[in-house]
């Protein structure tokens, strides 16, 4: 099995039809194990039980950035290699990435309430993730704005790559802006190395969420391919009736 074989949408459909149930099962099991481990993890001596939000929050935040990476690779595939599945992958990933980013924001906010005493703090990390969320929404708006998927794909690919270059700059600027406005009033997580009792559930959850992304992404790509087939069938039908 080479990448070229996968490039064929029909091959992709038949292959993923076989793989998808196993992936879904693996995701479910790992997620269950991860949740159990998280529940069994000891309370933090400072944060108490709220530390357990971390096991959901950190994988979501990690995936929020990872998905943009996946979309950037897909964008390269669209613009440089004109890979037939690349824009399908990019389009399918955007709403999933937005969902992970949204969950990272919500869990971060819920975590912030007991820790900082407020749901929202213009903290550098939260602000950066909020901007990332805005960019996901903009990208999705762009996908929806154009009827022709190949045309939308190219525009979205350019914007995704520009975003990939710009995101580190935005992160850096927000860090700067934040230190300028509120010097270290916010209590920060991390710094100390994580105890094994926290690390193992966190890693399990990270792997589980990554698998969840792969499963959802694959399913969304299948849907998108089928949606495009329906579209071209309908266009053929319109052409026949005209002739």
């Amino acid at each position: 099995m080479t990448l070229l074989d996968l490039a064929n949408p029909t091959r992709f459909l038949s292959l993923t039809a076989k793989v998808l149930p196993w992936l879904a099962a693996a995701t479910a099991i790992l997620l269950a194990v991860g949740l159990y481990q998280s529940a069994m993890a000891p309370d933090d001596y400072q944060q108490g039980a709220t530390v357990k939000i971390m096991f959901i929050h950190v994988p979501n935040a990690w995936l929020a950035m990872f998905v943009w990476g996946v979309m950037s690779l897909s964008a390269l595939g669209t613009l440089v290699w004109r890979h037939p599945l690349a824009d399908v992958s990019a389009k399918a990933a955007a709403p999933i990435g937005a969902a992970f980013t949204f969950l990272a924001l919500v869990t971060g906010s819920l975590w912030g309430r007991p820790m900082w005493g407020t749901y929202w703090e213009w903290d550098a990390r939260l602000t950066s993730v909020l901007i990332l969320f805005l960019m996901y929404l903009g990208l999705m708006a762009l996908w929806r704005a154009v009827e022709d998927p190949t045309r939308a794909a190219r525009a979205a690919a350019v914007l995704t790559l520009v975003g990939a270059v710009n995101l580190p700059i935005i992160k850096f600027s927000v860090d700067w802006w934040n230190t300028l406005h509120q010097p270290a009033s916010v209590m920060r997580m991390g710094g100390s190395t994580l105890d094994k009792a926290f690390l193992i559930p966190l890693l399990t959850m990270a792997v589980a969420f990554s698998l969840l992304f792969v499963t959802l992404h694959m399913a969304a790509m299948r849907n998108e391919i089928l949606r495009r087939r329906v579209r071209s069938l309908q266009m053929m039908q319109a052409g026949q009736q005209a002739a």
Partner: peptide, 30 residues
């Protein structure tokens, strides 16, 4: 970049602002 995307999309206006404004945050900050 947004203006060039507007050619591809056959529309500008609000969509353009939504796409471009987050990118200009660093300029505003500094």
């Amino acid at each position: 970049i947004g203006a060039a995307l507007a050619v591809t999309l056959h529309r500008g206006g609000l969509l353009l602002a939504v796409l471009v404004l987050p990118l200009s945050i660093p300029v505003l900050i500094f």
